[in-house]
Nucleic acid binder design. Structure first.
Length: 183
DNA sequence: CAGACGATTGCCT
DNA sequence: GGCAATCGTCTGT
């Protein structure tokens, strides 16, 4: 069973989308080959008031994508060397997105599950760069999401604080916007 | 236009 | 645990 997720999937409250993304697949077509990961960890950045979000300082050349309609990728460059990928959520003009932090895949040769953890390692694995910024998630753009029949029990989702946002005020720094699957 | 710093990673002690 | 790498983005002058 393979069903491509439409923009509607992401046009819902950001925290709802974030949880729902666990167990879905991020699929990439690159140089004729298809690479995919089952998403295992995400973080939500929700709205103009979220002090941990890039959008908390308003619309800028970089963050304007976060104000776009749901279902586009927000890819940005950080620390002078890393790309990080988000999917924009919620209605137009409401800045929100879900950062994809980790995923896993089955290595048929080694016959083992391989975890790709860390948002920058994930983009490196899936060959995602600024070229994908602003693109809509669908097959045509060679980067999209699929539901492949994996059902996630709520009990297997852990909520925690987001990583690397200690610069934000306590309310936002401590908000439980990071979700990951138990192993 | 200068300066600070980052939604990170990998290597070192 | 500490810290360097490395440059785009944002802020304040």
């Amino acid at each position: 069973m393979r069903k491509t997720l439409s923009c509607d999937f992401f046009d819902r409250p950001t925290l709802v989308v974030a949880r729902a993304m666990l167990g879905k697949y991020l699929v990439r077509k690159y140089r004729g080959k298809t690479i995919s990961l089952m998403i295992t960890e995400v973080e939500a950045y929700d709205g103009p008031l979220d002090r941990a979000s890039h959008a908390s300082h308003g619309r800028t050349p970089r963050t304007k994508i976060m104000f776009d309609p749901a279902g586009r990728f927000y890819v940005y460059f950080t620390y002078g060397m890393h790309w990080l990928v988000n999917i924009v959520t919620g209605p137009e003009d409401y800045p929100a997105a879900v950062l994809i932090r980790a995923g896993k895949y089955y290595d048929a040769e080694k016959r083992e599950l391989v975890l790709v953890n860390g948002p920058a390692r994930l983009t490196k694995f899936l060959k995602i760069t600024g070229a994908q910024n602003g693109k809509i998630a669908r097959k045509k753009t060679e980067l999209w999401f699929e539901y492949r029949g994996v059902r996630i029990n709520r009990r297997n989702i852990i909520a925690s604080k987001r990583i690397g946002v200690d610069y934000a005020s306590p309310i936002w720094r401590n908000k439980l916007c990071r979700f990951y699957l138990t192993t």
